[in-house]
Design a binder for these strands. Sequence first.
DNA 1: AAGTGGTCTAGACCACATA
DNA 2: ATGTGGTCTAGACCACTTC
Lengths: 270, 270
Amino acid sequence: MKATVALGERPTAAVPLPLYVQLREILRARIQAGDPPVGGPFPSEAELCARYRVSRTVVRQALDDLVREGLLHKHKGRGTVVTSTSIEEQLGVLKSFTEEMQAQGRLPGARLLASYHGLPEPAAVAALGLQPGETAYVVERLRLADGVPIAWERTVWPEALARQLADADLDNAVFYRVLEESLGILLGMGEQTLTAVAASGEIAGALGVATGSPLLCVERTTYGVNGRAVLWGRSLYRADCYHYRVRLQRQPSRLQLLPTTSPGGPSAAS
Amino acid sequence: MKATVALGERPTAAVPLPLYVQLREILRARIQAGDPPVGGPFPSEAELCARYRVSRTVVRQALDDLVREGLLHKHKGRGTVVTSTSIEEQLGVLKSFTEEMQAQGRLPGARLLASYHGLPEPAAVAALGLQPGETAYVVERLRLADGVPIAWERTVWPEALARQLADADLDNAVFYRVLEESLGILLGMGEQTLTAVAASGEIAGALGVATGSPLLCVERTTYGVNGRAVLWGRSLYRADCYHYRVRLQRQPSRLQLLPTTSPGGPSAAS
DNA sequence: AAGTGGTCTAGACCACATA
DNA sequence: ATGTGGTCTAGACCACTTC
């Protein structure tokens, strides 16, 4: 018998989680089980309040999360319906190269090309907020999928982090794991810019393509949960071996607001 | 006619907008004006309640939106700080070319190159779920930003939709608006695949770049809220004029919903 | 008229951070 | 000890949709 205690049938203070989190997971489980089938009507907020003995605030916090995840859809005045049963189609999840390859069922790998302390490129300086003239630790690796080179990668580490990185096995290190586990840095957000570039002779050689071949260029700045940039990287992918996939969600029409000078006269910023 | 509303110095019932929306826009304007400078401390929730004479609910609703947009960052027990002055790229939001250009402050445009009924390419057939031999409506346009060609675009419409599209001004139509407003189709999700390609002679000529130049290739399938594919498109962007930006979020080690007896820290996903 | 989700108030207690 | 944001309650009124 598993030593797991399912979240109860209803949220309770005995569980060390907010009530709305408990309720959200309870509801998520029911949805995934198809309890209200896709397209079917979901219980009203009032009904959920009564059934689970929580205030409407808790119910709305839980539902808001599920709506945001795409499982539910609310219609003002009409009700709530189930629109999906799974969240496996993850929207914009930050993953390392290794995690991404594994998710695709490919065997990830890396080969160290170079590593040195020096002045990084302007893009990295700006992204990491380095001082002019401040050095950083630069690591260049070839990334492999199932043993085949598919990307050339340069990562730039602030010196403070690089010191603690010194003894890592750069050939095989999963940088995100190093950050999270060895350095204890919780990762928050990542910002990526994608464009296309022509392969230089050096990189074309490493990747085994013709000079001038189109490559997918991915520049990524990774931030800690505190909002500070901790890592910058540029990856150049062989376009014939790698496609970047994103799932986007349509946002309900946004309000057009013009917070302009008020009719009574320009509002003085006090 | 666009309904624009002038906002005052504080939310009021005289404005036909929710108080939290009014407050959000008032605060957004101040942040963009640098009132609390980036990195500086933002007024506490209690202070905002007092200053704007609204309940904490309203303040929190407004702040939540701004946090979600990336303008603010909250720290439990410590306070709120300004982290940016401009709306950052939304996380995985599905936007039309026009909407995207507007968000970037560029003037969008289009020039019709060709439109015809015929057999679309295999990628479109697969994405739209067409029958073998089934025709579709293909529209090729040059997309402009501030009057400069930056992308070559081919969209493929199922015949059923194309009929209703016939009288649209293809030179300037915003396809997403046509779908949503004229055809009454609610858009849900979009799936994109990005890669790099070399410009063919014809496309290079249209875009004003050299043949063989690297282009960013974006293939998108757009789905209605009912989950059916309604539109397929491929866009080839000049890599020197356009960068695709994405924000990703690190997945917090997923809440173990059924963990138990673990006195360990409940990391509430916010 | 009844039910729904959207908004809002006025409280309350808590865990956390700072001093 | 104090102030902060996080959570929660118990109400209330509204606009919208359906009957």
